[in-house]
């Protein structure tokens, strides 16, 4: 049951906002190394998007069916972050040492791809998971 929303306007509105905000979050994540932003901020923004959506559904757990459970996000986030660290170690560098390559992409100019971004993705996932785990649980009406 996707649950009929209490207010169609809020429903439609929140969906529209949801996707916009997610895009913003991804932008913040990717540009964080060079401009204000980063995985943490992006995670919070994305979390806000989901919270908005859930609030519109009155935190009905049924509405979240099919979504990854927050624990998976939490675990995956930490796994990605830790894995970057251990990978650099395995590659002979120090723990959590980043590396970057400069790529020339037609149309974009020179773009630096850095492993730190992977680490930041981990942070992003984890923060998102944290927001969902906490807000959704607290939002549910207690019995």
């Amino acid at each position: 049951m996707t649950g009929p929303s209490r207010s169609p306007i809020l429903d439609v509105g929140s969906r529209a906002v949801f996707h916009t905000v997610l895009v913003v979050a991804v932008y913040l994540l990717c540009s964080g190394h060079n401009a204000p932003g980063g995985g943490f901020i992006a995670g919070l923004v994305a979390g806000a998007a989901f919270v908005l959506l859930d609030a519109a559904n009155d935190f009905d757990p049924a509405a979240r069916r099919g979504r990854l459970p927050p624990e998976v996000l939490l675990g995956a986030g930490l796994a990605v972050a830790a894995a970057t660290g251990l990978t650099s170690l395995a590659a002979g560098a120090t723990f959590l040492e980043s590396d970057f390559v400069s790529l020339s992409l037609p149309g974009f100019g020179t773009v630096k791809a850095t492993t730190a971004l992977v680490f930041d993705v981990g942070v992003f996932l984890l923060v998102l998971g944290m927001v969902l785990a906490v807000v959704d649980r607290l939002g549910e009406e207690p019995e």
Binding site: G32, H33, N34, A35, P36, G37, G38, G39, F40, A81, A82, G85, F95, L96, E97, S98, F100, K112, T114, A116, L117, F119, D120, V123
Partner: peptide, 20 residues
């Protein structure tokens, strides 16, 4: 660190252990 945002570079690279 390959980044211009010093704070972010510190967080994801120089002091990534803090962030972890």
């Amino acid at each position: 660190g390959g980044g211009r945002n010093v704070v972010n570079v510190i967080l994801t690279d120089f002091r990534a252990l803090d962030t972890l």
